[in-house]
Nucleic acid binder design. Structure first.
Lengths: 231, 231
DNA sequence: GTTTTAACACCTAGGTGTTAAGCT
DNA sequence: AGCTTAACACCTAGGTGTTAAAAC
């Protein structure tokens, strides 16, 4: 186990999209046709579309870095998705986790994107869940609405692949037997990032400042610095 | 119908209590022993304790007023409760509504506090619900986490009694037949208030400024004003 | 006259990268 | 040297009563 681990808080809110931006099919990650386990109809037709894909691509091209701190830090860009094809009468559970990866493509499991049962729900990292905690686990008498997101522990200087899981809450008594077919995992490779305690690539810093509203206070400084180098 | 209606947004967060303040039995509203309909065991043992009761009492003594605006306004003090006696394995739905009342005690229905089936769930005002919307109604594909609270329409210059409802989500197919026994209503009379567009009682204004952190900016002004009158 | 609106200054609350100091 | 921490100034975001103008 690595020497240190840092909490990482994904930004709150998943599907806040104001019904804008069709974004085109390029942003969606379709299900694998060759999935070994036949999925339940409740999840088989579900598809997920990544929001802000253009911004994710821009970061990914430079090698996305995410600051991690002891107290927890939001991720930027935000991991937000639109969901399609869910049964409005069914109950679902939405999960997210982060799988450690290295940069050698050969070590990336084949068929990893989108769903491959063997490397799905249980992983080396803690899973984050939002949406009704009382569905995930029975509601305690108090704290019915904690924070929308929990904290994730990541190791600095390591690279991670976020994953998104849609789990159908099977009402059948023996639902454990159908665990494999009742969920679907979605992976967007452009959301991969390196966890750091301080930015390593100055161009990442500049892109963060340019695109994150909360970092607007540094826009003057970085443009001045760029000018000084240019001429 | 009255000429105007204003959205009213209850402050977010219901049971955020940090496990402090036992508050004593005086703050809780026990169930009526003479309830005509025998309640389901899932709700019969549920009890609710009002948070910040001392502050509510202080406001109530002066005649609580709540500002309502077109865009919606939080209430202060916040309506927060602690819940006890719920079955951790059961699903519940929590609702809140506001019943119009006038000041004549004779017109207040007997046995209104706590639960009286006749005047419970359906009321003249819209109901607010927080907690998982996908339990209240099936989750739409988008907007899975909207705001924690919805908007309430209240009429200015009218008096209201907030109510809190705990509803057991009965898994039985014919659950409609048990609607009366599957919920329990709690009423705290000290949370009654008058909806206004501008404060009528200056002592209410002073108490709001003194107790609401967001109004701290006016504390110097009001103390100066008080000094000017005193001598 | 009374009631309502909208702009405003002043707060709380919390998300940024920066920076200097600390750690290994 | 490199990595980590904590305090900091600077933002966004939004909850207050105030005030003067508008509406009725």
């Amino acid at each position: 186990p690595p020497p240190h681990a840092y909490p990482f808080a994904p930004a709150a809110g998943v599907a806040t999209s104001a019904a804008a931006e069709p974004e085109g099919p390029g942003a969606s990650c379709a299900a694998a046709a060759k999935a070994p386990v036949k999925k339940n109809a409740k999840v088989a037709g579900v598809s997920v579309q990544l929001e802000m894909k253009a911004l994710w691509d821009e970061f990914n091209q430079l090698g996305t870095e995410m600051i991690v701190t002891k107290a927890g830090r939001r991720m930027f860009p935000t991991f937000q998705v639109k969901l399609f094809g869910m049964d409005p009468m069914a109950d679902y559970m939405l999960l997210m986790d982060f799988v450690p990866v290295d940069d050698k493509p050969s070590s990336w499991p084949r068929g990893f994107c989108p769903t491959y049962p063997g490397n799905s729900l249980p992983t080396q990292t803690s899973a984050v869940s939002w949406l009704p905690p009382q569905i995930l686990s029975p509601a305690p008498p108090l704290e019915l609405i904690p924070h929308l997101v929990f904290q994730i522990i990541l190791n600095s200087m390591h690279r991670y692949q976020p994953r998104f899981h849609v789990v159908y809450v099977d009402p059948r008594k023996d639902s454990e037997k159908y665990a494999e077919e009742n969920f679907k995992t979605f992976v967007f490779e452009e959301t991969r990032f390196t966890a750091v305690t301080a930015y390593q690539n100055h161009r990442i810093t500049q892109l963060k400042i340019a695109s994150n509203p909360f970092a607007k206070g540094f826009r003057d400084l970085s443009s001045r610095e760029t000018e000084r180098r240019a001429p």
